[in-house]
């Protein structure tokens, strides 16, 4: 009885908050998908399957696929850049480690929008990157860097890279150094020891980092809006436009559901493989 009371008191606030502000709105959004649009936004409560039919239209499907592709490339790059970063930080002396970690999360102290605007300054035709390229004579005239997919990827990567580095760092940091000595003692040269011991043991953390980067990248609409130009490059923009510009709430909700469904599948895969790799996490 006492334990139950304790659990309720401790869980209560968080659970209540999530129920009121996430579960209920999500349920509402899901329910919108089966109704028709009102003329000036809102809903007409007459069931229809039209929204789902429209969602698989190649026009919209293409946006979903492009979004997944952009988020996927961002995630892959984050992994390739983030792993060596985390690896080096985990092996720094204690003081330098702290400094490196603070430096890593320092950008988060600045507003997300402002940081994204900074990329415009960097990538614009008269921006720093083009200045440097023309100045060194590498290109004759400024490149169109802004309003491209690579620009979106650069912006997303910049924003979410720490979310890849931190779980990898945590995993590498707690890894028993003696395991590498054991590998060496059994005849593995350093590169081989890394591939057969360090890498497989950080697989769960790699998976976590990938989900942490992929999920917000897929749904992001600020970065594609600012760095991708006015075009509806990603599904996040599409959803936003349906609600706020086209005033088609049911269809916006349907597209949102598509994103949620994609992420749910991803999280299920992660949970499943996480459990398979669980033995690797224990000593």
């Amino acid at each position: 009885m006492k334990a139950k009371l304790e659990r309720i008191t401790l869980l209560g606030p968080g659970l209540g908050y999530l129920t009121a502000l996430m579960v209920v709105p999500l349920a509402l959004v899901l329910s919108y998908t089966i109704f028709q649009r009102g003329r000036f936004g809102g809903l007409v409560y007459e069931p229809t399957t039209e929204n789902f039919r429209r969602a698989v239209d190649p026009l919209y499907l293409d946006v979903l696929v492009t979004s997944a592709w952009i988020a996927g490339v961002t995630t892959l790059l984050a992994l390739l850049i983030g792993y060596p970063t985390a690896y080096v930080i985990a092996r720094l002396p204690a003081r330098a480690k702290t400094i490196a970690l603070v430096a890593l999360v320092l950008p988060f102290w600045t507003n997300f929008l402002i940081r994204t605007y900074a990329w415009i300054v960097l990538l614009s035709p008269a921006g720093l990157v083009n200045d440097a390229l023309t100045g060194w004579g590498l290109v004759d005239e400024p490149l169109q860097l802004l309003y491209t997919k690579p620009a979106i990827i650069a912006g997303l990567l910049y924003s979410y890279l720490p979310l890849m580095v931190l779980p990898l760092y945590a995993s590498l940091e707690k890894q028993d150094h003696e395991l590498l000595e054991a590998a060496a003692n059994l005849g593995a040269r350093p590169a081989r020891a890394f591939l057969t011991v360090t890498l497989p043991l950080t697989l769960p953390a790699m998976l976590t980092g990938c989900v942490f980067v992929f999920v917000p990248s897929l749904g992001n609409f600020v970065v594609p809006e600012l760095l991708g130009g006015g075009r509806t490059a990603m599904v996040g923009n599409l959803v936003r436009d349906q609600f706020l510009k086209a005033r088609d709430w049911p269809f916006g909700a349907t597209l949102a559901l598509a994103v949620v469904a994609m992420l749910a599948v991803l999280l299920l895969i992660q949970a499943w493989s996480g459990r398979r790799l669980q033995g690797a996490d224990r000593a």
Binding site: L179, E181, A182, N185, G279, A280, D281, A283
Partner: peptide
């Protein structure tokens, strides 16, 4: 990694994965 000497670690250092 090339010594003909093997060590049994105090912590055993078995590969958990």
């Amino acid at each position: 990694h090339r010594r003909p000497v093997n060590l049994m670690f105090q912590s055993y250092a078995l590969f958990p994965h």
